[in-house]
Design a protein around this nucleic acid. Sequence first.
DNA 1: CCTTGTGAACGCATTCACAGCA
DNA 2: TGCTGTGAATGCGTTCACAAGG
Lengths: 207, 207
Amino acid sequence: MQRQIPEVVVSRLPMYLRALALLKSEGVEFISSKGLGDRLRMTPAQIRKDLSFFGKFGRQGRGYNVGRLRSELQQILGLDKNWLMALVGVGRLGRAILDYKGFAPEGFKIVAAFESEPDLIGKTVSGVQIEDIADLETSLKDKKIDIAIVAVPSSDAQVVIDKLIKSGIRAILNYAPICVRVPRGVRLQAIDPVLALQSMTFYLKRD
Amino acid sequence: MQRQIPEVVVSRLPMYLRALALLKSEGVEFISSKGLGDRLRMTPAQIRKDLSFFGKFGRQGRGYNVGRLRSELQQILGLDKNWLMALVGVGRLGRAILDYKGFAPEGFKIVAAFESEPDLIGKTVSGVQIEDIADLETSLKDKKIDIAIVAVPSSDAQVVIDKLIKSGIRAILNYAPICVRVPRGVRLQAIDPVLALQSMTFYLKRD
DNA sequence: CCTTGTGAACGCATTCACAGCA
DNA sequence: TGCTGTGAATGCGTTCACAAGG
């Protein structure tokens, strides 16, 4: 049905969605590819080309209906439902993630958390009861978890990720600063501020 | 002097560095581009081509000396010195960032923090005394800050970033989930887990 | 045999430019 | 006129393939 969409195109759709949400809150009804491009610092052609992979959403002479395009993109990205997530690793970083208020409004709910540290198991943090990591596989399936967040020490990350994959998880948000391997078919996104810093310094150092 | 290096090449160097650090800790002395590529899931040709932008670091028949290549890359990226960072926004997220233990070992030190909330100003969090955001410009210059970390609410992020740039900051790590504009010459890296999640769901939804 | 370093070939993403339509 | 949607053209990053060296 849909041709092969370049990954880089998919990765830009959430940005469009953000801009559209803002436009909607400003009461803007129609936006041209040029208008969107100005806000996002992109060329209008790129936006039109990206959207054209998925259909025709615009009106000549007018541009795109903000509300309509927004709900189209939400549907395309699968954001018209709630996604259930599990956190693995409830240390310092894990607790900050559990506490983070930015996921829920976008439809991402953390409904399970796992730890190996016995003192933490059974406790409730930010409304989520911490389970034994030994129960990972059964609990993930019981709770129909879609996405896993990995916040364990680097040394444990690969093992944890292998377990997650064996449990059927196909999307992982990894906070461990390590290069992990996943088989084809499993999506992995890394959140790695140190990597981001280390590539900025290259441009800073020329003084 | 050095030709224009593609940004995507620069962004891969920190990954090479990571792999090399691990290899060194394993006691490996020489590694071929093939060996590195296997670990990083990349083609050997890409690694050789990337490195060739900066010089000739390998030995035919042997590969690369792990320690040597590591220190070359550190130098290229400007990681042979400590970088001073300031945090703006000491809310929930900001405190987690101040608390994060991953920056210091890589030479990134948070030595200043700023807030607008009066109750927080003057307090010390994770060893850093919180200053009034009104003093941003002078304090950044006094302390010779190189990099700013932005962890304020989205609604304030653009204003804060404009101030930072006016204060002479040329590299920003932005945690606010918003599309901000920076002039050419200023590096901006965004840490945005929601964006990462939203592009994974595209691939999950086909069931 | 093993490797690197690199010009050339390739393929893919971005941009151009224009037909088509309001 | 203003703007979309899209094939064609461009530009750029990746991969190939091989000379050169150990």
